[in-house]
Amino acid sequence: MSTPEAALERVHARITQACHRAGRPRDSVRLLAVSKTRDVAEIRALHRLGQTAFGENYVQELIDKHDALEAPPEPAGIEWHFIGPLQSNKTRAVAERAAWVHTLEREKIARRLSEQRPEHLGPLQVCIQVNVSGEPQKAGVEPDALPALADAIAALPHLHLRGLMTLPAAETDPERQRIPFARLRELRDDLCRRGHELDTLSMGMSGDLEAAILEGASLVRIGTDLFGPRPA
């Protein structure tokens, strides 16, 4: 059975090798540990090994884990990322707890997050989720609608638009994996030409992080390879 130390080392080794292949510095890619369905003890074990950023898909899990781990007198100091679908009636809990939100796809949700973000926490770092694969069942804004949404989000006072995120269709061929990631990079570059200062591409998971890094990922979201298969 793999230990947390061994799993973390393996993932960092994969990222390092992919960065080397891409001709990129290792510190150009951050690791986000996807801790959905994992318990507080598992998160604490990775955090003690130096992993600081954790991603949650469900609002109630974010609430429970944040409040357990950030309670005084010794808050963990974790950087919490919300990476799941967000409904308008649950934005306040996320605005009050998360440092990042990766899944914005509607201006209404963005406005609520901005309005509900506590002043003392500073701006909420956000990414727009883009449906680059055109799958009707997938969340994310369509590429044609992206510029208008980016303009609207960038104008909100308590949000900082950092970049784009995608969750493409599953693909096992390494070269085909690169296609949607390249598309997301092109969309990011287009927004930069339009005047947005974006530094984040949130893309790549356990099965395709190498392809994502080759196409410019700055943050990879890894769950299975860090924690093992999820419980049924």
Results as ranks from 00 to 15, higher is better:
A95T: 03
E96C: 05
W100T: 00
V101L: 04
V101T: 05
T103C: 08
K108M: 04
I109T: 15
R111Q: 10
R112G: 00
R112H: 09
L113R: 01
L113Q: 01
L113E: 01
S114A: 04
G122T: 06
P123T: 08
L124N: 02
Q125M: 05
Q125W: 01
C127M: 08
C127Y: 01
Q129N: 03
S133L: 05
G134W: 11
G134T: 07
P136Q: 07
Q137S: 10
Q137V: 08
K138N: 01
A139L: 09
G140T: 10
P143S: 03
D144K: 13
A145K: 13
A145S: 09
L149W: 14
A150L: 05
L156S: 02
P157H: 08
P157C: 07
H158Q: 10
H160E: 04
H160Q: 08
R162V: 00
G163Y: 06
T166D: 04
L167G: 00
P174R: 13
E175S: 06
Q177V: 14
Q177D: 07
R178Q: 14
P180N: 09
A182S: 12
A182M: 13
R185G: 06
R188E: 07
L191D: 01
C192I: 15
R193V: 15
G195W: 15
E197F: 11
D199C: 12
T200N: 09
L201V: 15
L201W: 15
S202T: 11
S202C: 09
M203V: 14
M203I: 14
M203W: 14
M205N: 10
S206F: 10
G207H: 10
D208Y: 15
D208W: 15
L209G: 11
L209H: 13
